[in-house]
Amino acid sequence: MSPSSRLSGGREIQLAPDDLIITKTDPSGHISYANRTFMRIAGYAEHELLGKPHNLIRHPDMPRGVYRLLWQTLQAGQEFFGLVKNYTAQGDYYWVFANITPDYTAQRTLAGYYSVRRQPTRAGIAAVTPLYQQMCAIEAQAGKAAAPDASMQWLLAQLAAKQVSYQQFVLALEQAGAAT
């Protein structure tokens, strides 16, 4: 099913506590490896994933500004932690707590990215949902070209007021939610 033919909404698929979704991509974000857990949850067969852009599963509720921040972080050679809402092939959705790390060759050239995603806390999802909704509203007003930077800057300003980075924010949400 193409992303354009999926209906927004759908039912939530919740990861089990022991589910680990693992993917690898090339430097441009095209999938070179997907584990069976990813295929089961996302609803794709391996041949439908390999060579495809990872944004195949991007949910429209996810602000483009989060992805702009993700790519800026990775291109700086740093790992990224984030809360992400994804689409399944059937039009359902699932949330993940994602850790994405640059993957280097022995010669220290970028080979791609390695991502491990697991079940997020419900408290984390509840905390980011209104932020992501506001970011999407900002993006709708800013226009396509300016949207990612406009919403990313708004998010970073909100977090700067709390004196935390996005990574610190989501890590604290996950730690606090796991403790409850």
Rank of each mutant, 00 (worst) to 15 (best):
M1S: 15
P3M: 00
S4L: 13
S5M: 12
S5L: 12
R6Q: 11
S8Q: 12
G9E: 09
G10T: 07
G10M: 06
R11E: 14
E12H: 11
E12K: 10
Q14E: 15
L15D: 10
L15F: 15
A16H: 15
D18K: 05
L20Y: 10
I21D: 02
I21V: 14
T23P: 08
K24I: 10
D26A: 13
D26W: 03
G29E: 09
S32L: 14
A34S: 15
A34G: 14
N35I: 07
M39H: 12
R40W: 10
R40Y: 11
I41F: 10
A42D: 14
Y44R: 01
H47E: 15
E48K: 12
L49C: 13
L50I: 15
K52V: 15
P53D: 08
H54G: 11
H54S: 08
L56Q: 08
L56V: 13
R58H: 11
H59D: 05
P60S: 07
M62P: 03
P63W: 05
R64H: 12
R64F: 05
G65W: 01
Y67L: 08
Y67R: 03
R68Y: 13
L69D: 04
L70N: 01
T73N: 03
A76C: 02
Q78H: 06
L83E: 09
V84T: 11
V84Y: 01
Y87I: 03
T88A: 09
Y93P: 13
Y93S: 12
V96Y: 09
A98W: 00
A98V: 07
I100M: 05
T101K: 09
P102I: 00
T105L: 00
Q107I: 04
Q107P: 08
Q107L: 11
L110D: 00
L110N: 02
R117T: 00
R118N: 09
R118H: 06
Q119R: 14
P120Q: 10
T121Q: 08
A123G: 13
I125P: 11
A126M: 11
A127C: 11
A127S: 13
T129H: 06
P130R: 02
L131N: 06
L131F: 04
Q133C: 02
Q134W: 00
I138F: 04
I138E: 01
Q141I: 02
K144C: 14
K144H: 12
A147P: 04
P148C: 02
D149F: 04
A150V: 00
S151D: 01
S151Q: 00
W154Y: 08
W154D: 06
A157D: 05
A157P: 01
A160F: 03
F169V: 04
V170Y: 07
L171M: 06
L173G: 09
L173N: 11
Q175R: 05
G177F: 08
T180E: 15
